[in-house]
Simulated scan of single mutants.
Amino acid sequence: MDLSKTEFRVSAHITAGYDVKEIASKFHRSYHTVASQIKTIRLKNKLKNLAEISREFVLEFGDPRHYIAMVFLIIQVGLFFNIEDDEYKRTRKTKIARTKIASKKHNG
Rank of each mutant, 00 (worst) to 15 (best):
T91C: 07
F57Y: 15
A102Y: 07
I23D: 08
E87A: 07
E7T: 02
H28K: 13
H32R: 10
R90Y: 00
I38L: 11
S54N: 01
R90W: 00
S54H: 02
A16C: 04
K44N: 13
V71S: 06
A24E: 01
K5G: 12
L59N: 11
A69N: 10
G62T: 03
H66Q: 09
M1L: 12
L3E: 02
E56M: 12
Q76M: 15
G62A: 07
L73K: 13
A69M: 10
A102K: 09
I23G: 09
H106C: 12
S4I: 13
A97D: 13
I96W: 03
S30R: 09
D19I: 02
R92I: 07
I41G: 03
L47E: 04
V71I: 15
T94Y: 11
E56I: 09
R29S: 06
L59K: 12
L43A: 14
Y31L: 12
Y88Q: 02
M1S: 09
V58L: 13
R90T: 00
D86A: 15
M70P: 00
T15K: 03
L47I: 02
L3S: 04
R92F: 11
A51T: 05
S30H: 07
I23T: 02
L79N: 14
R92D: 02
M70T: 13
E22F: 05
N49P: 04
K26A: 15
S11D: 01
E60H: 11
F57Q: 04
N45P: 05
I23S: 04
S25L: 14
Y18T: 00
V10T: 03
I83G: 10
Y67V: 06
L47R: 05
T6G: 12
G17K: 03
S54Q: 08
R65Y: 12
A69L: 11
R55P: 00
D86Y: 13
D86L: 15
R29P: 02
D63S: 14
Y67M: 07
A97Y: 05
S30M: 04
F81Q: 05
K5D: 11
D19H: 05
I74P: 00
A16L: 06
Y67N: 01
A97T: 08
I83E: 06
P64K: 06
D85M: 12
A97H: 11
K95W: 07
Q76A: 15
N45Y: 08
I74L: 15
H106W: 15
V34D: 04
F8S: 07
R98I: 02
G62F: 07
T40P: 00
K39Y: 13
D19Y: 03
I14A: 01
L73N: 09
V20N: 09
H32L: 12
I83K: 09
L79D: 13
K44P: 01
M1I: 10
N82K: 08
L50E: 13
E7W: 01
D63W: 08
I68F: 08
V20K: 07
Q76P: 01
E7A: 10
I23L: 08
N107W: 10
A24Q: 03
I23E: 06
T6H: 07
N82M: 08
M70K: 14
K39R: 15
F27N: 02
S30V: 00
A35P: 01
I75C: 12
N82R: 10
F80Y: 14
R98H: 03
M70S: 14
K105E: 11
D85V: 10
N82E: 12
D19W: 02
A12Q: 04
S11M: 04
